[in-house]
């Protein structure tokens, strides 16, 4: 190294702006998998652009990307919220709170996700709607639902607004379970299931922070929740970021289960395309192409975030 530096300084060869050889060596050693992936990706992209059936498959399936992504994002956001609350409940010293939270976690970790989706879609959401809006559904001659005063009318109004029933009709109608889109039902199913898993991740993260941090914060007069918010959770989240990213990717892949209740996300559209056209290889190739790109993009995003949050552990 010293000899090289001397050669540069003596003006024998101009010092390069970046050390190309070191950069290339690093790239090959650490990023070959990514290069291979990108090459394969480009080949498939070219195939999709040139092959008429693959184009058809792409045009049919790709509108589902936004559906898959929005289900993932919405479920993830809610599940983080649930996970955090339940994690705090699980470390509570109050036995009532602890047992409620543990009951929830064990139930939803124990049931297969597909089963939970079916239960939410066909049983739980309709039952909930009935509880809010009442079961009595009399129909007028024009087929309009006639409003009886719903049992929980403000929730009824709120739900109607949420699902986009025109404002002037809200007072006359009640919410019916068919008004509630499958996407929302499964977002709930995903959120409560992943919330159970997330709570374990958060709990592990919180417990990974030494007791001294809480003691130091409390000894300065901070309340328990101030200490959690400003001291414990920021450190815990940094420790569990890889696990959160992992769950995010798992969740994205699990949205394929939504095809079981006919939500028009990519897996459902692929099944439709393939069975309509009897073209399984093409449909599944496009589907894999979509999932692989989404998950790798997400993984890189998580890595970048992790790097940013490590500022205090790096030099300078």
């Amino acid at each position: 190294m010293a000899a090289t530096a001397q050669a540069y300084d003596s003006g024998l060869s101009p010092r390069p702006l970046i050390d190309v050889r070191a950069f290339a060596r690093r790239l090959v050693r650490r990023q070959s998998w990514l290069i291979a992936f990108i090459v394969l990706d480009i080949i498939i992209a070219i195939a999709i652009l040139t092959d008429p059936i693959l184009i058809d498959a792409w045009l049919f399936i790709s509108p589902g990307i936004s559906v898959s992504l929005s289900i993932t994002l919405a479920s993830f956001a809610i599940s983080i919220f649930i996970g955090l609350i339940v994690a705090l409940m699980r470390i509570s010293k109050n036995p009532f709170i602890y047992n409620i939270a543990t009951f929830y976690v064990e139930i939803f970790r124990g049931l297969p996700l597909l089963v939970i989706i079916l239960i939410f879609n066909f049983v739980f959401v309709p039952a909930l709607v009935d509880a809010i809006a009442g079961v009595d559904e009399s129909t007028s001659q024009t087929g309009e639902t006639i409003a009886a005063r719903p049992p929980i009318y403000f929730l009824d109004d709120l739900l109607q607004r949420l699902v986009g029933i025109p404002e002037e009709r809200i007072a006359e109608t009640t919410i019916r379970s068919r008004d509630i889109d499958e996407s929302w039902r499964i977002v709930l199913a995903f959120a409560v299931t992943y919330g159970a898993f997330m709570s374990e991740v958060f709990r592990a993260g919180i417990e990974s922070i030494g007791r001294g941090q809480m003691e130091a914060a409390r000894s300065l007069g901070m309340s328990y929740f101030q200490a959690m918010r400003y001291i414990i959770l920021p450190q815990a989240v940094r420790n569990i970021l890889p696990a959160l990213g992992n769950n995010f990717i798992l969740l994205l892949k699990d949205t394929s289960l939504a095809s079981a209740v006919a939500v028009p996300e990519v897996s459902f559209l692929t099944r439709q395309f393939s069975s309509n056209r009897f073209r399984y290889p093409e449909g599944l190739l496009v589907l894999s192409f979509i999932y692989a790109n989404l998950t790798i993009l997400l993984a890189m995003l998580v890595n970048a975030l992790e790097y940013r949050l490590q500022a205090d552990r790096r030099e300078n």
Binding site: E215, S219, D312
Partner: peptide, 13 residues
Amino acid sequence: VGMVFQQFNLFPN
């Protein structure tokens, strides 16, 4: 009441 600990317990974040 200020307190100083054996292990410092500064907030590393």
